[in-house]
Design a protein around this nucleic acid. Structure first.
Lengths: 98, 98
DNA sequence: GAGATATGCAACTTTTTGGTTGCGTGTTTG
DNA sequence: CAAACACGCAACCAAAAAGTTGCATATCTC
């Protein structure tokens, strides 16, 4: 999942989908600095990570976020946050003893 | 940051540092499937993302998590979670109307 | 039905990335 | 002091990733 979101183009795509809702490839490609094909590939990468889903609708393919996986991802992020909290606590204690 | 954590080796490194505390390159390389040099590169990549910091201590270089950035990262993750929450709400509503 | 749209498929090029190897240097330690 | 240890630097390699181009196909729309 981190790898999927690690590319700036892909992160932007997820961002747009989360704020603007379902969008077609053409729409998502419009103001992108890369080709439509590149966008398609990125969307498929995101789909591979389960973060996004595309459904054919007439002649266009509409992409949207995948709620289930997104929830799971959220959960994972929270877990990591907790793990980090512990580490941050340790670091703070360490700094104070210096 | 996502890119930094997007590599499995790097994610493992962060995981070890968060649970085992400060470690030298040699330690971190011991049970890794790759060379010490590869580990060094990954640590420097993580350092570039600000997630980790290495300080020389005698003949060895000890690496540890960077609390400030880690907090910032936590914050960013929470922001994204919130953004996703809104999207998930929208998606749920959409499903219900079908 | 013809032209415009929206997309898919496939081959190919170019960067980037992850990884290695060889060697040199500063520190410990016996 | 000599050997062992921990590491840095630099060149190099291979595979994966990002991106493009050209063309084909399915759908709309007038």
């Amino acid at each position: 999942m981190f790898a999927a979101l690690g590319d700036e183009t892909r992160l932007r795509l997820v961002g747009r989908l989360s704020t603007e809702g379902p969008l077609s490839i053409a729409r998502l490609s419009e103001d992108a600095p890369v080709t439509r094909q590149a966008i398609t590939k990125h969307l498929e990468a995101l789909e591979g990570a389960g973060l996004v889903r595309g459904t054919k609708h007439g002649r266009e393919r509409i992409w949207d976020l995948e709620p289930r996986r997104l929830m799971a991802a959220r959960h994972a992020l929270e877990q990591i946050s907790h793990q980090w909290d512990a580490a941050i606590g340790r670091l703070r204690a360490f700094v104070e003893t210096e």
